[in-house]
Amino acid sequence: MSLFDKLQSELDDRNEEGGISTVDLLELPESLRRIMRHMLRAVTMPRKDVLTLVASWPEKDRISEEELDKALKSLVHQGWLIEMGEGDLLGYRVNLRRKKGSQLSIFNTIGEKIDERMEAARKAAEEKAAQEGGEGTPPPEDE
């Protein structure tokens, strides 16, 4: 099974939306994991830089330009990569899945209470410091 076929079968098994999770990243073939890692660092990576990267690998690890383009197209189709520009300016960026929120966090219940207590403690400390500072400095006498 070629790299593209492996990837396609993997993608066909999924019906997820909204970008790639880092767990998905773990399941990609090594060559694509390597490319995605570079793209994450570069934020946006021109296609020509992807080709240069692949050409820098040991011969046994390299993938053909045709196979690479198929794999990149598949990732774009899946919404895991965003294609930008065209022709010589064609480039890609990784589309990470949004970190989901949760209603279950304990902070949803006690977050504001923690703030109120912290603020009260801060004010109490300030007042104490002001009082201690004030003890040594008598207030000015009325004339």
């Binding site: 899945r97 949004r98 970190k99 929120g101 949760s102 977050g111 923690i114 703030d115 912290m118």
Partner: peptide, 18 residues
């Protein structure tokens, strides 16, 4: 701040932005 931690945990965030 508890309210800020609560907000990010409740709303999530854009991992691309991070």
């Amino acid at each position: 701040k508890g309210s800020e931690i609560s907000r990010v945990l409740k709303d999530g965030y854009d991992a691309n932005k991070l």
